[in-house]
Simulated assay, not measured.
Amino acid sequence: MPVPDRLFLALLVFDAAVLAVVELVFLPLSFDGYLLPNLDGFPLPLTQLVAAVTTPLLVARAGELSPRPLVASAPLVAWIVVVAGVGLFGPGGDVLLTADWRSLLLFACGALPSAVVLGRVLATALGGPS
């Protein structure tokens, strides 16, 4: 793989890591009257939507660089490692992944669409239908 492609892959992995941290920080966002209007603490699943859109895009761009599994899955692996690592062993020992449906939805919205895109990239590389 040429050097510009390697640098672009490093940028994609870095983007995935930064997005994972931002999604974790804003995971408990809700309509509680502090930052958003008061709607009895109704949760706002904004970070899950961001994960569902951005992580598959990063995997698709990495798959365009090279259809090899290690290259194509690099942003997804980085996103999962950062979400799990920072979410469970966060800064100062804070646990950012809470034991509720929002954390599970974050993993599902980030990992499942990305896995589908990764499967499509690998199937295309093997000569399957695009």
Rank of each mutant, 00 (worst) to 15 (best):
L106F: 10
P129T: 12
G93Y: 01
L11S: 13
S66E: 05
L7K: 12
F26Y: 05
F14L: 15
I80W: 04
Y34D: 09
A84M: 09
R102G: 11
E64Q: 11
T124G: 15
E64T: 08
S103D: 01
E23R: 13
V86S: 02
T55M: 05
V95W: 00
L19P: 00
A111C: 15
F26K: 01
G127P: 00
L96D: 02
L112G: 11
A20T: 14
V25D: 03
L70P: 03
V59N: 14
L49Q: 09
A60V: 04
E23L: 07
G127I: 07
S66F: 00
L11M: 13
L35Q: 06
F107C: 09
P43T: 03
L96A: 07
L12T: 02
A51N: 01
V13Y: 04
P56Y: 06
P43H: 08
G128Y: 14
L36S: 08
C109D: 02
Y34M: 11
P28D: 07
S130K: 10
D32C: 09
L106R: 13
W79F: 10
V18K: 10
L29F: 04
T55D: 00
L46Q: 04
P28N: 06
L105K: 07
G41H: 03
Y34H: 07
D32L: 06
R6G: 12
V22S: 11
S73H: 04
A10G: 14
D100Q: 14
F89N: 06
